[in-house]
Design a protein around this nucleic acid. Structure first.
Lengths: 341, 341
DNA sequence: GAAAGCATTGACAGCGCTGTCATTTTGCGC
DNA sequence: GCGCAAAATGACAGCGCTGTCAATGCTTTC
């Protein structure tokens, strides 16, 4: 029933090693031989055995994605991109959720490293900034790609970056251009580098526009809906209130809108609100959210490609390069020109 | 550096086969020997090699989860439960998103089957109702668990079921008890069995309460936010309008709330809206959604356990049993007693 | 035309584990 | 203390593939 490499070899009239060569796209095989082998493979519907391959060779055709739980959107999209890339090259993706706060992070990782021979690991934030995990991976010589690391210099491993600061800058600029001069900002979780970058971009845009920033206009948050609720409460309950709120992500923006509604303010007439990430939520609330779209799927795809490339030419240790992916400002109904009532 | 079973064997002063026995919890090993081996394993930080194990034996310690894209929540939670179960038993989870509509479904699956020796496959809706996939899996003798299959009789493989009809019944009953007599219903995608079950539950509750059902009060949807928008439009634009809308899932409920807001109706004063699934969205919109909580994580956990159990005692082919998981009605701000203004 | 050089192919030894079956040890009844 | 069954242990052969290195075939060069 299930054919092995030996079957293919005898049917093609060559040695198993030659079959192996063809299968792995190795050089030094005549085109004629190559064809014979390919035909035999097709005829027998032969598929190489994973375990045997990785036991004998150095590749396992397995990639792992390690994540905490930044957001379900994030994970699913990243996963989608990564699996797409995997499929192109006969790879598969293993998922490893870990618990950053309470769980035994290092133990989890060791579990993974020690047992499963993966060819590479994709590290999403905030996991990618765990020194222990990164160095454990380095010590085990398992290639990794870090997605938006907080500290890019922690390791020489390549990373996929999104210019959060520039995006936040552009978004703030858009609000300013719409006439807003008093803008509140709700920070993200300080454990995520993105929070700081987004705040930086916000601050810079104000400064470049010669707008004064009242420190009270920046409040803490942690990327959750509840934080948006609380942050908006804080920003809107003062004697004067901002005409716009820039939330560090969509969940918090949703929270802000929710609180605004509860306070009797209509969005965007009385208050403009914008978010960041363009999650599905953004177009599911009323009014739909102006936000920044991050190409997460694309980031996943590229991360996987990087790792697969590395595994293919493991000999040639060329410089691993960082990759930047592009953002886009998506304008929807939650923002408008300032209402000078 | 990396120790093998031989190292453990010599350190413990036993044969590799005995080490193997201890590792696999096989019988016929003295407790004393067992301890010696365990100590050696610990001292050497030994971890069995995956590939070797699955090449030599019959288990691969790998489970696959095949899914289309029902909802990001669904996937992530299911994944969380499944990976948790996997970790308990040294298993890993491979994710395989496929494209039900456009993609080469069968090809994708063959890719998986032929190459990766997984011990079992978790099939989520609507994939679990693909006759071709199910029979391909059966032919390849790969165990599977289907989550909420539309047709439980299609195969003898076990399934995890949630009683959608009963949940919808209870939810409708709750609305009726709150005084609603004119209730609209927005259907889910007809490709999902859940849509039909939920509708059934809704209808039955009305009937049991001797309430007349105007056929126009049931409108089509497809589980998307937009469908909720459109469905609510249809339901609310007639000469008379319902005092409550029961949407087939949370996304559609969010759409309904959004449209209600646009039409100047306040929720829940003028209109009660409830959903199904208790996604994160449910508590992120204003007002927060009354909905049905499905234990998806738990379903994932159980599915994985079932598969792992099967793989462990592959000899004893005991009857695979179906499992039902419990739902819960979560009452939040989007519903209230009927307002007889 | 022979020697040297390179492209192509094959033989063979594992990779680290589990399954099978042989062998040793233990426990137990008398 | 002996014999026997049962429990405990070990020897060994692969699982299906890749890496190494040797062997072969085919050009090229003088």
């Amino acid at each position: 029933m299930k054919s092995t490499i030996t079957d293919v070899a005898s049917r093609a009239g060559v040695s198993i090693k030659t079959v192996s060569r063809v299968l792995n796209d190795e050089p030094n095989v005549t085109e004629k031989t190559r064809k014979k082998v390919r035909d035999a493979v097709k005829a027998l519907k032969y598929r190489p055995n994973f375990s045997a391959r990785s036991l004998a060779g150095s590749r396992s055709y397995l990639l792992a994605m390690v994540y905490d739980n930044p957001s379900v959107e994030y994970i699913t999209h990243m996963q989608k991109g990564a699996t797409a890339a995997c499929r192109e090259h006969g790879y598969h993706l293993v998922v490893e959720p870990v618990d950053w706060d309470t769980g035994d992070l290092t133990g989890d990782i060791e579990m993974l490293l020690g047992r499963l021979p993966v060819d590479g690991v994709i590290l999403t934030p905030p996991i990618c900034d765990s020194r222990r995990i990164v160095s454990a991976l380095e010590k085990a010589r398992i290639p990794m790609v870090r997605i938006c690391p907080r500290n890019p210099l922690m390791t020489s491993a390549p990373s996929i970056n999104m210019d959060d600061a520039a995006a936040a800058y552009d978004m703030t600029r858009y609000l300013i251009d719409a006439g807003h001069t008093d803008i509140g900002f709700i920070r993200g979780a300080s454990s995520h580098e993105s929070s700081h970058l987004r705040e930086q971009g916000f601050r810079k845009a104000l400064k470049d526009a010669d707008l004064e920033l009242d420190p009270a206009r920046i409040v803490d948050g942690d990327y959750t809906f509840e934080a948006g609720l609380a942050g908006a409460e804080l920003l809107l309950s003062g004697y004067t209130r901002p005409t716009a709120i820039f939330a560090g992500n969509d969940d918090m923006a949703a929270g802000a809108i929710s609180r605004a509604g509860a306070l009797g303010l209509s969005v965007p007439e009385d208050l403009s609100v914008c978010g960041f990430d363009n999650t599905a939520l953004a177009s599911m609330i009323f009014p739909p959210l102006t936000t920044v779209s991050q190409p997460i799927t694309d980031a996943g795809r590229r991360a996987a490609h990087l790792l697969i490339d590395r595994a293919s030419k493991s000999g040639t240790a060329e410089l691993p390069q960082d990759i930047a992916v592009e953002y886009e400002i998506v304008i929807r109904g939650s923002t408008g020109t300032v209402n000078r009532g």
